[in-house]
């Protein structure tokens, strides 16, 4: 199981990075999701995979082979954070399509390296 999970983590990370190196910005954003899934899986598995019962306890105590609850809590946190970041990234994607009219990654990012534009002429308000 450990080998399987490690390979899965590696594969998800590799695919995620590959997607982030894509020409289209959409796949870059989705790559973040895949990469995040891989990392979440890694964090989860860091608590080991020897649990035979969910981490619920009763008055009598915890099951002897209960799954490690700590990484579960950590991953839960990470999943929600990842979702929030994904939505933001998606929002950036949408907005840059609206503003740039392109979704080709390098064309969009090259704009930031253009020389700074002059400030608009000062209006009457100043």
């Amino acid at each position: 199981m450990e080998i399987l999970v490690s390979l899965t983590v590696g594969a998800l990370v590799a695919i995620g990075i590959w997607m982030m190196l894509d020409r289209g910005l959409l796949r870059v954003v989705l790559g973040v999701v895949v990469l995040g899934n891989g990392v979440n899986l890694a964090v989860f598995s860091a608590g080991r995979l020897d649990g035979r019962a969910a981490a619920f306890v009763t008055e009598a105590g915890a099951p002897a082979l209960a799954a490690n609850p700590l990484p579960q809590a950590l991953v839960l946190t990470a999943i929600v954070i990842g979702f929030a970041l994904f939505v933001f990234a998606l929002a950036v994607l949408k907005r840059s399509w609206e503003l740039h009219g392109k979704v080709e990654t390098d064309l969009v990012t090259a704009v930031a390296e253009e020389p700074a534009p002059d400030l608009p002429p000062q209006g009457d308000k100043a």
């Binding site: 840059s96 740039h100 090259a110 704009v111 930031a112 534009p117």
Partner: peptide, 10 residues
């Protein structure tokens, strides 16, 4: 917002 700013943000 603005084009440049968004580009840098990406």
């Amino acid at each position: 917002g603005g084009r440049r700013r968004l580009s840098g943000t990406v």
